[in-house]
Nucleic acid binder design. Sequence first.
DNA 1: ATCCTCTAATCCTCTAGAGGAGTGGAGGGG
DNA 2: CCCCTCCACTCCTCTAGAGGATTAGAGGAT
Lengths: 243, 243
Amino acid sequence: MSVALAADQRLPIYQRLKDALVERITVGEWRAGDLLPAETQLAADYQVALGTVRKALEGLVGDGVLERQQGRGTYVRRPDFGNALFRFFRLTDAAGTVVQPQARILDRWVAPAAGLAPRLEIAADAAVLHLFRERTVNAVPILVEEIAVAADRFLPLIELPADAFGDLLYPLYDQRCGQTVVRARETIRFGHATPRIATALGCTDSTPLAIIERTAFGRDGGVLEWRRSFGPADQFNYTIDLK
Amino acid sequence: MSVALAADQRLPIYQRLKDALVERITVGEWRAGDLLPAETQLAADYQVALGTVRKALEGLVGDGVLERQQGRGTYVRRPDFGNALFRFFRLTDAAGTVVQPQARILDRWVAPAAGLAPRLEIAADAAVLHLFRERTVNAVPILVEEIAVAADRFLPLIELPADAFGDLLYPLYDQRCGQTVVRARETIRFGHATPRIATALGCTDSTPLAIIERTAFGRDGGVLEWRRSFGPADQFNYTIDLK
DNA sequence: ATCCTCTAATCCTCTAGAGGAGTGGAGGGG
DNA sequence: CCCCTCCACTCCTCTAGAGGATTAGAGGAT
């Protein structure tokens, strides 16, 4: 196979090659976990030197898009958002082992975006799928979440049985809807419960809460999901490394 | 000048070169902001190919140790912890512009490490310099901090006049004591004020607080400083990008 | 069935060098 | 004095290729 590097001729070749490879991943030609052609093959395909291919591939490794392993090959990285959110709460049992929380969909509906339009970067009259979800450990609710996604991108989720959602949403987005979350931005603050949140959490309106707002972005940089999570502040515990 | 790459012969040359360069920075031969020799010069000094030097230098750029600029040279990066902590609080005035908070030393004393020994990675009977510090905006206290450092590494600070500390400690550490903070780990949680904290913040004991514990590390990976900051929870507001 | 050796494929390390592009200062013209 | 051109120096891009390390699988020996 032979491929031409289009794009802006003023950009360096390795940059255009990076863009070309990301594009092929974005359109789904290669999916998470897939093996890319060998670097020698890519060099031949794109008619560039091996060193240039390596520079592009190493750049994509640095960007978190690819993984390379000597003797095996170059793979599309599987984004691991597993339980990133739960770094924020103490989820160890009495023995000190980490506990995987369970998820349950409490409510689900579709409505116009309205006030959520700017957060999801869609039109105000576009349909939005809302999920109201609780997360429990040993049947004790520790977090409730309001989740909003553009309905047209997540059509399969509207009809999916509530008990088929599983504990993690991002693998579901990936498998059922072809939408891969690669980046997210979170804002943390402290506040108080609304009656609805208090009921779901089994606490009072005056209980202090940690509130986490998350915007999740897809491979193309667009917003995939917006969610707001509420949990008891006294269980909040978050560690981060700076620089 | 000609230099030999000692270290474990089994490691790749570029890795040993990285180690050698970091070592020369650690011992103070090059300080923050200093210009390194040109890559051609380094290649001649260490008797390796230019590409190998570049791989080492690019690695150190990735590690945040160096900065390179085409046409200028390679420089030791100036760590910019400026007001990293203040990402955690809303510090914009009514007009929306960012406000630089002022710092004031409220108290200072030296005592044996005791319970702080493990946090500072020093002996229990080693001397620790304690600082009790407030940070204000428009004379309103928004944060108080308990700071602890190993006294023997920060001798100049024991006698320094309290009004000579300035608003930022890390540049002071660097300039007065030759200790450079390059990395930090923070843990955020929710709690309530002790009487002493409440007095300093001008609030009551029951006021909800955001508590930030920070351990700051030096170039050699050792602990330089441990601090705990307290601020009103209702002003807490923190944004982070994930992966 | 298990273990071993061999082999092909892959990425990693390292070398060598040509040409390009950005920076900053020296020197000259106005 | 100011502006411009030129130039030395720097890092950046790209090429070309040799040899090594690691992996996974095929095939044979036990």
